[in-house]
Nucleic acid binder design. Sequence first.
DNA 1: GATATGTTTTTTTTT
DNA 2: AAAACATATC
Length: 777
Amino acid sequence: MRSNYLDELNDIQRQAVTNTSGPVMVIAGPGSGKTRVLTYRIAHLIEKGVDPFRILSLTFTNKAAKEMRERIEHVIGGEARNVWMGTFHSIFARILRQEATKIGYPSNFTIYDSSDSKNVVKQIVKELELNDKLYKPSTVFNRISAAKNNLIGPQKYREDKYLVSDDSQSGRPKIAEIYALYAKKCFQSGAMDFDDLLFKMYELLSTHPEVLHKYQHKFNYILVDEYQDTNFAQYLITKRLAAVHENITVVGDDAQSIYSFRGADIQNILNFEKDYPDMRTFKLEQNYRSTTHIVEAANQIIALNKNQLPKTIWTDRQGGDKIKVVKAVSDNEEGRIVADTIFEYQMRLHLRSDDFAILYRTNAQSRSFEEALRRQNIPYKVFGGLSFYQRKEIKDLLAYLKLTVNHNDEEALRRIINYPTRGIGDTTLDRATVLASERGTNLWSILSTIQFQPDFNARAKNLIEEFVMMIKSFATMLQTMNAYDLASHIAKHTGIMKELYTDKTVEGISRYENIQELLNGIKEFSESDEIAEGETVSDRSLGTYLQDIMLLTDTESDKDDTNRVSLMSIHSAKGLEFECVFAVGLEEGLFPNQMSVNSREELEEERRLYYVAVTRAKSHLFLTYALQRYRFGNLIYSEPSRFIEELDEKNLEFIGHKVRRAEPTSGPDTPWERSGTRTTKETPGKSLYERPGAAQRQATPNFTPAAHTPSADFKADDPKTIQAGMEVEHEKFGIGKVVSLEGDGNNRIATLFFAGIGQKRIMLKYAKVRIVSGGAE
DNA sequence: GATATGTTTTTTTTT
DNA sequence: AAAACATATC
């Protein structure tokens, strides 16, 4: 245990860490050391003798949970792994795994992701012979999901006048019925969807007082991160769990509430005081992350919102770069400019690739940036979007594994009963489906007793029996083999391996590799003996593995993903920080998004999202927009976002296009003006503003990525005048000596030697180097 | 019942 | 533009 950790905190932070008992609310502005407070608070509790097993720490994302665990481990060591720490979903899944049988589920229940859920809905709409144009899976599912997040079950839904009349007004009166069937089907399949992990957790606690009692007493201290993002279910569960000890700490920032579409209710944090009148509040208002221009802009943005807790975020990182507003002609040019700028900044300021992030409103925007970065040979990593576990080949193999563990899993069954093709087609399956619903049972019990069912021809019966036998034989092996051996056996035996191996197209090869990677992942899981579970011995069964990975967004294999530019949605960037941030696609209709400009509440949430994007940046922030881009395959014209206008020009610098070729034509920063009215379509054309040449830029006084501070009169010399043997001053590395030179003109590269740092190869075009001696001044 | 070809829809954000 | 979906053909 590091003993001096309290010294690393400011006054308020320290109070927030050391006031350990009773309800505590920490309102934490962006970059105010929120995670630090949370982790040190946990560390402090453990140091004061609290058993790590009795601390429950809930986060929203795996990323946040992982980071927190690592940081606590850093402060207090190995004991950190005993803290119950994870996402709401994963912690509740873990508890449900243990208690499932009490609410009629098998402990190896399957978890359905949203595409599984939508398939179930689709199936029901088909069975009820409803209009599938009206009852779209996503629409219906969102309705069901919202109900669950508000702890409304099928019965309550049917009785809720408001909900029912809402549905009939939108022409979908059957939603209540679909919901009931959906719930029944999931139950019969031994499956829970994401929302069930909350909903069933609540059900468990309310119907089983002894279970509630057990966990209420077990968790002596409860901490919730990003409390502004909790929905009603999460709110009520934590409230009940905390009811005995009332040692509940919530940390959050109402200004960063961006998940209302998932049922998050900002009132949960605004009403914390009502729930716990004797609570204490700590407001962290000092931002340690960003420079003044960025913090001022952020304050400006959020001031336009009505509904919020008052606070003043400030920084002492004076000065720094202004926020650069960049106009591009098209989405592709936007990509190019960003990639070029990243290259330039890497050269000029010696930033690493992982100092950069490109943040967008919708995942579909990543394409143009990926292309441009690839062309520049800049390594990058795309977060979100289609995750590893959503790929077809992965889902196929996983479906076999799921079905082996849980025969009742109908989604898994439907997915692979005829893959690879074994002659069991739609006709047969439809017949079995009808039979199952007539008998009020599930598909598997029809199939596993197929020889006793009429209505099937001999061929179909035999094929089905063969399939059932195969799955059963896999299930037997569950007892004798470890997860990895079984998974490879299944992959081979079912012919999946062979089918992918014979496919020699590029996609085929990558699919084969993905299967290999999945198998490796399973191997790693089954061999790791890390005990991270609570009182139970860690469970390395295939069932646990399957539940775990359903809650992962991605493989999160940190083998090769260090030092890359991050591409992600603004939503997934919450909680992160980068030296240099590009907030891209600032166009009307895209950001703020078309879907979110119809009410004040929606627009305010978009603005909070904008606030999150802006406050990710430590030193450099770019806001970019494109005048035209492709959407659904056709070209659309857009206007700069109103969000740009909402900022104060004193924090901005406006930049047109043309980046690389820009030689010294620097003019004064020109105030930016909106072109015509909002409805005018702008013609793509020449930029009005040239970018100042890199070599002519003023050194930014307060930007100090490294120890060296350039002398006050620092002014870069013309690269052409640099000679080998000269003594020079570099903006970042200080005084050094020119060892050698290569290339000519614009692309001159110098090898410089700095005492204490070593040799650096530097492109003179981008670096600012001043001649100290050995040449003409 | 499987495969080839044409048609329609999709995009907001995530566990 | 790409993927999911529906219809035609073998």
